[in-house]
Every structure is written in structure tokens, then in C-alpha cells.
């Protein structure tokens, strides 16, 4: 995973051993290597689905579908560095297909989570609804939610986001910046002098 632009908060979730596990799987395609990849990546895919509004049972079901595809189709992938971009592209396609299947009216409803799935979120009652990230995501449009979850929660690099969302790098950065601007309207200001301190510390580092 490229570390371009990654900050400290991302470093902790970028696990070097992940890459070895993925390389092993791509080279051997063995069941054992697949289990290791599943262990490394399953939580992230499931969390992506949950944060994008799917209930726990659906998230579990779709996570399994995604990994069935990984098991069968990873042969088309050559580089371990592209794995997470590809994985989340598969996950996102799976989610879009699910929403399309679920759409009952003439109008395709691409974001069914707020009302129809709110009750189902109670399957993890003590955690999900109370998460701050859920409140922040409400301020964003669906495509921006994808970007924010994948970038900030799952720690994908911009290059991986471009693979996952099939968008140019510049568009990805522009949308991330727009999401930041939107969120700045609901966030409180920094305590006085905090931003100044950040600049000073950056200058010291440089």
C-alpha cells in the first residue's frame, strides 16, 4: 500500500505483513494462503459495508460473497500492491448490486440506509449508531461517503482509491477535499493557536 500522503493515523493500520500474506496467496492460490488473506482483510470489508449502512446480517452475507469472488478471481491480479484497491472495487460493486436488487420502486434508491435499515442496525446496538463517523457521514453525499470510509477508516492510498472507484487521481483528491469542506461546516473550530502549532511543528520537522 502506498504511503503517499499517509499520516500517523494511517500508519498503524498499514500492516506490512498483509502484503506478504497477499503475495503468498497470489502466488500459490492455496486454501491456506486464502485463509490468511481472509483473516487480514475480512474485518475491513465487513466494516466498510456496515459503515455504508448495511445491517450486520447483510454485511456478513455480502462479505462472504466478496471473498468467494476473491477466491475465484484473484488470478486476474498480479501485484499485491493493487489488492486492496481491487478488493474494495469488488466490495463496492457487490453493494451497488445489492441496492439495485433492493430497490422496489421505479426510482433506483442508491442509499437505502437511513430509514429502511436503521432498525436492522440494532443487531449491533451498542456500537454502530453511537459512532461519531456515522454522524459525519450523514453530512456527505453517497459517493463522498465511499471515499471517506475507504480513505480515513480503511486507510486506502489515493492510488488504491482510484482503482477501487475507477476514477482519476485528481478527481479523487478533489472529492476528498470537498468532503473535508462539507465536514468543516459541522465541526467546531480548532482551539485557538492549534493550527498555528501544526504549521510550526511541520516547519520543525522539515
Amino acid at each position: 500500500m502506498s504511503s503517499s500522503g499517509a499520516e500517523g493515523y494511517l500508519a498503524e493500520i498499514l500492516q506490512v505483513e498483509d502484503k506478504h500474506v497477499i503475495e503468498e496467496f497470489l502466488a500459490t492460490r492455496s486454501d491456506e494462503a486464502f485463509c490468511a488473506v481472509f483473516e487480514a482483510a475480512c474485518v475491513r470489508v465487513r466494516r466498510y459495508f456496515l459503515l455504508r449502512g448495511l445491517d450486520a446480517a447483510t454485511a456478513d452475507d455480502m462479505t462472504q460473497n466478496v471473498f468467494v469472488k476473491v477466491y475465484r478471481e484473484a488470478g486476474q491480479l498480479r501485484e499485491a500492491d493493487r489488492f486492496y484497491g481491487w478488493l474494495f472495487a469488488v466490495a463496492r460493486n457487490e453493494m451497488i448490486s445489492y441496492w439495485r436488487r433492493e430497490a422496489v420502486s421505479d426510482k433506483v434508491q442508491l442509499e437505502p440506509l437511513e430509514k429502511s435499515h436503521a432498525a436492522n442496525l440494532m443487531t449491533e446496538p451498542e456500537v454502530l449508531p453511537a459512532l461519531r463517523i456515522k454522524q459525519l457521514l450523514k453530512a456527505l453525499d453517497p459517493p463522498e461517503r465511499d471515499l471517506v470510509v475507504l480513505r480515513f477508516v480503511e486507510g486506502l492510498s489515493y492510488e488504491e482509491l482510484a482503482v477501487a472507484l475507477k476514477l482519476p487521481l485528481g478527481t479523487i483528491k478533489w472529492r476528498i477535499f470537498n468532503a473535508r469542506k462539507k465536514l468543516s461546516r459541522i465541526a467546531g473550530p480548532l482551539p485557538a493557536g492549534d493550527a498555528r502549532k501544526q504549521i510550526n511543528s511541520r516547519k520543525q520537522i522539515n
Partner: peptide
């Protein structure tokens, strides 16, 4: 404002 939002997002 944007720094604050980014930090909030990172914490969340």
C-alpha cells in the same frame, strides 16, 4: 476549520 474537520474525521 478544515484542519479541525480533518482531525475530527481521523478521531472518528
Amino acid at each position: 476549520r478544515v484542519s479541525s474537520a480533518t482531525r475530527d474525521l481521523q478521531d472518528a
